[in-house]
Amino acid sequence: MKSLDRRDFLKSLAVAGAGVLSPAILNAESKVHAPRISPTLANQYPFFGIHQQGIATPAQKHIYFLVLDLHTSSRAEMKEVFQTWTAYASKLTAGENVAPYGKNLLVPPKDTGEADSLNPYNLTLTFGVGASFFDKLGLKSVRPKSLKDLPHFPRDQLREEFSGGDICIQACADDPQVAFHAVRNLVRVARLKVTMKWSQMGFNSYEGKETPRNLFAFKDGTINPSANELDKVVWVKDGSWLDNGTYLAIRRVQMHLETWDRTHLKGQNDTFGRMRDSGAAYGKNEEFEEADIEARDENGERIMPEDSHVFLAKKTGIQVLRRSFSFASGVDSRTGQFDAGLLFISFQKDPMQFIKIQNALGNVDRMNEYITHIGSGLFACFGGVSKKNGDYIGRALLG
């Protein structure tokens, strides 16, 4: 007879032992499994609405971004997954567990529990799908022509492990454990249908309504479209399954902090085309004053360097909605330097908005001396979900 390994032995003991337990023990209610306490629900973002939250929503302080690959080619199975994710997401963003604790103590709880007693901390969950999602589910005929892998940009050094993917889940909250708890439970319930490809935790720090600073100490995301400009810049309005949705471009950008720290302050300002302390563009006094790339000094020379980040981006005349987060993931074993950088995220109604800006930066951008793009992805983020008629994430696509 083949000998049992330790795991099989323990499993056999559990099965054998269960048969002698009394019904009273099997159905006993746990005294430590109290209902989840949500002391403060102020400013929570409901999951249901015309658009998904986490896009035009004011950026929270933490993100857990996860990319998944399909482990099935069944449209029906993925429909079931998205239906379940909808039910879970509506509870998680409301500060509830995905399911209450059961009475049987010998069954694993449906909710992993690390957010028990925590309020939702403005949690938002945003879902998107990549081009490969359509290929694997036989949906090529309804894949938007714009949804394809981003092109290779100048200076890209992309790593396969940080690129592409079938599905993305963006969880943002003002508490990192709340964000992770949400993603963990969404993945857990879909384990047989999806596998994790890559993930990244990130953070923003700011006081009040100030613009967050990136790890180069410059304010990041100063110029974003106003609420009145979102239809023009962000939301898809074409009557398709993507109506009221948008495209999410993500880039994992490694920042070479040691090189940056050896650069004098004027060189840092010249790189961005902004003043590090105030965030004001060259030639301006306040952060939110619109940059004038044509402004000149008394000698007729341009005030803003023509290879600065702001000059090159502004010259395109194109807008996107930036929603980026910094990350610090320990030490890069290959270099002995910080593994740190920017999880660049932008939302736009047409991927060409991002592509044209990135191509304009190209080899010219002075910033290239200090950063390397090592990850890349493009996802179509569904429109919002209605509370009525059994709606769920992606229903317009999956039926």
Rank of each mutant, 00 (worst) to 15 (best):
M1W: 06
K2M: 02
S3G: 00
D5H: 02
D5T: 00
D8M: 03
K11E: 04
V15S: 09
V15G: 00
V15P: 01
V15Y: 08
G17D: 07
A18W: 05
V20H: 09
S22R: 06
I25E: 12
R36N: 02
S38T: 09
A42T: 09
G49R: 06
Q52P: 00
Q53N: 12
G54N: 01
G54V: 06
Q60D: 03
L68E: 03
H71F: 06
M78E: 06
F82T: 04
Q83F: 02
Y88D: 10
Y88A: 07
E96G: 00
N97T: 01
Y101S: 12
G102C: 05
D111R: 08
N119E: 06
G128H: 10
K140C: 09
K140Y: 01
S146K: 11
F153V: 02
I167D: 07
P176E: 02
Q177N: 13
V183A: 07
L186I: 03
W198S: 10
S199A: 13
N204M: 13
E207Y: 14
K209R: 12
L215C: 08
F218A: 08
K219W: 01
D220N: 10
T222E: 01
A227K: 14
L230R: 05
V233S: 02
V233A: 04
D243T: 06
L257N: 04
T259V: 14
W260T: 11
W260D: 07
W260L: 11
Q268P: 15
F272C: 04
M275A: 03
S278Y: 03
Y282R: 08
E286L: 10
F288E: 04
A291L: 02
R296S: 03
R296K: 15
D297C: 01
I303E: 05
P305H: 12
H309R: 11
L312A: 05
V320K: 03
S326G: 13
V331M: 14
T335P: 07
Q337C: 14
F338M: 11
D339L: 15
G341Q: 04
F344I: 05
I345S: 07
F347N: 06
P351W: 04
P351A: 09
M352D: 09
N359K: 14
V364S: 13
D365H: 07
G375K: 13
G375C: 14
L398G: 01
G399T: 08
